[in-house]
Design a protein around this nucleic acid. Sequence first.
DNA 1: GACACAAGTAAACGGTCGTTTACATATGAA
DNA 2: TTCATATGTAAACGACCGTTTACTTGTGTC
Lengths: 188, 188
Amino acid sequence: MATINSDTRTRDADRTRQAILHAAQQIFAEKGFAEAGIRDITARAGVNQSLVSRYFGGKLKLFEAALEAALDPRLMTDLPKEDFGKRIVARFADERAGRISPLPIMFGAASDSEARAIAAHLLRDRVFEPLKTWFDGETAAVKAARFMIVSLGFFAYRDQLPLAEFAGAVDPGLRQWLETEFQAIVDE
Amino acid sequence: MATINSDTRTRDADRTRQAILHAAQQIFAEKGFAEAGIRDITARAGVNQSLVSRYFGGKLKLFEAALEAALDPRLMTDLPKEDFGKRIVARFADERAGRISPLPIMFGAASDSEARAIAAHLLRDRVFEPLKTWFDGETAAVKAARFMIVSLGFFAYRDQLPLAEFAGAVDPGLRQWLETEFQAIVDE
DNA sequence: GACACAAGTAAACGGTCGTTTACATATGAA
DNA sequence: TTCATATGTAAACGACCGTTTACTTGTGTC
């Protein structure tokens, strides 16, 4: 049984598991699935490398758990349809401290076939399908596709390819176009 | 000196080099940079694995050469601005036999930092910067960014993520939106 | 305190990969 | 024909990675 102050314990499986999961989210987002090593992740978590296999069943299962924990299915669909464009761009463009965006994790899995399959499956079930039901009318599938295309393209443009002079920054004109683009999806 | 029918030669460095390059384009596009092995590429080319290092200087240099050979800088900017939307979507959506699109190669490099840097550099110099000079006015940079976002997002949506029931197919309604979207970039 | 088990660690295993090395052979000029 | 060299091959090298194994140590219970 746990003591009153269980924080004093030097061994805590749940805490270790969470530390691995959090470190995995960070390193998968930073380095991509292929370049993120078990030893990188467990070193940041401050634990032994073998615990990934013990607690998660392997690197691929850890990736799935890390991505799923980063996915918030209500990320878009809890927004009001008024000001949807401004609000969704604000969520995308402005980093929120402590919050790990799932998009870098997903893009980092692009070149590994197994990780990509997991990422695609999660994205479909947790984002794409909820979006389709959230949008109205018979064009809901096209609207969801438009949302995915602009979102994925924006992250690929901003984060994956240092095309602009300052990667990560968003030009005001581009930001305005993004806002009207997202707003048009819910208005039409 | 070459004989009259040099095709009878069993050794031809140029032909071998081209065979490696062509096989590399295919396999980098199919499996991504990380999962594409030197042995895969040289096996398809029908030559020995060591020739990659001898002729190209290594896997990374081979990737750069393969991507550069697949990039056609006039892919967009030789189109007339009338019917630009329909024409560019036709180029993207309808596969052309024998032609290897550079975008699968680029996405396949997403999770390898070195390959991604090469891909980003080539995309900027050969596509993004020409696009900026091709677009008119002071909003050329924003227009080029819009073009990249929609293009990258479309390929990520269609080819990288099997979100729709039939990956690779393009819904007519989505296609129409893509056409108006691209047309708007050149019209505004 | 003694014990059973959970929690954590260190080290080795087996495999893959890019690259290099040592060697064989076709080529074309002298 | 001879021979230097370009071309191609087979095999080994060295490193890295995910995983597993054997072992140690802390924890809670009796």
